[in-house]
Amino acid sequence: MEREEQRNRRYWKNLATTLHKEGRYAEALRIYRQAILTNPDDADVSYNLGNLLRTIGQNEKAISFYEHAHRLNPKDPDILINLAPLYRSGQRHDAARQCYEKILQLDPENATAHYFVAALAGQTPPRAPTTYVVELFDQYAPTYDQHMNQVLKYRAPELLRNLLLNYAPTRGRRFLTCDLGCGTGRSMDAFERLITTVDGYDLSPVMLQRAAAKNIYRQLIAGDCIETLAAAPASYELFVAADLMPYIGALDPLLEVIREKAKSPAFLVFSTEFQEHGESPRLLTTGRYQHSLAYMQSRLRAHSMSLRAFQVEALRLQAEQPIQGGLYLVEV
């Protein structure tokens, strides 16, 4: 009888997990709730239910199930890895810091935890860890376009295209283009009429799979944008980085390789999260960097680049509030 109950529990857990992956959230939620009632001490069920609730935007309920799962299984770092971002998004910074510190006790080499401990302490490491960015966007890829367009009202690519059209000599010109941090190819939807050939560079293999399905790119290169661009044989007339800079604090290595790969005269258009004052980047508790105009001007001068146009605009929403960004047009 006990074995039969165990088989039934495994069956319902597996079914709920499958329904979640297929996007059948209401059905998965119903089964998980039944499972948690019959077996409230199953850490896996609490954890998976937390994952589902987070997926459908019920963060406070997700937190309670993650916390319950952690009490049942305090040595599982995956529970804490999923719980900490919900504390951060809810401005519960002390709880988030404690969460990341517990992760480091279990996994001292966890780069994401080190990164957010620094962010929550007001420190600014030079860039986001590769493992963090890959994990973030691999998970985000299936819903990225829909979420950016419909929920976050993301419009940086369109604003950057307009900046290029308004302030650069583009009449009748089409560019050999490098799309840095290309993701799913969302930016090239806006630039379609301004490009001839485009290559995409991104860390996330799952995002690149989505980009490949759009048949926009000549080639898609997986890996660190700075390293892969430096190794590429191609040179480019236009560089687009619509949402790359918020994951790179110190921009000198990127600007240096763009300079090396520019087919003169070339242009660079990019967006940042805008910092009004300050001579250096600032890492926010969101895990994204802000850059000021003063910082960008100093770094562009250092790499012999000319700032042709700059604007501050609302790029997207976060927690239903507009995020101000800096939009830059640079001649390389």
Rank of each mutant, 00 (worst) to 15 (best):
Y217H: 06
N8K: 14
M188W: 00
Y167D: 15
A16R: 06
R3D: 08
C178R: 01
L208A: 01
P265C: 05
L165C: 13
L284N: 12
I103V: 14
T184W: 01
L238Y: 01
G249C: 06
Y154N: 07
Q321A: 13
R171M: 04
T196L: 11
D252Y: 08
L106K: 10
I221D: 09
M245Y: 15
C178W: 04
V332T: 14
R308M: 15
I36R: 12
A242I: 00
A95I: 00
G223Q: 06
I79C: 01
R88I: 14
D243N: 06
I195T: 15
G181L: 05
I81S: 08
P246D: 03
F310R: 09
K261Y: 04
N110F: 11
L86Q: 02
P142R: 04
E5S: 10
P129Q: 03
V257R: 12
Y295W: 06
T170N: 06
A118G: 02
K263V: 00
R92E: 13
Y247K: 05
A84T: 11
A156D: 14
E101W: 04
L208M: 02
A16G: 09
V330P: 10
P129A: 06
A250F: 11
D44Y: 01
E67K: 11
H303L: 10
T131L: 09
L180T: 03
L37F: 11
R92Q: 14
P281S: 05
A190I: 07
N82F: 00
H303E: 10
C99E: 01
I79L: 02
K263H: 10
E5L: 14
V332Y: 02
A121C: 12
R186H: 10
P157A: 06
D224H: 06
L29S: 05
D44F: 00
V134A: 07
Q219M: 02
A62G: 00
A212L: 03
L104S: 10
R282Y: 07
Q6N: 07
C178D: 03
L83D: 01
A266G: 12
I226H: 10
E273T: 07
L19M: 13
K214F: 01
A242E: 01
G172I: 08
F191G: 02
R210I: 00
A230Q: 14
P77Y: 05
L136H: 14
K261D: 03
L254R: 13
K75V: 12
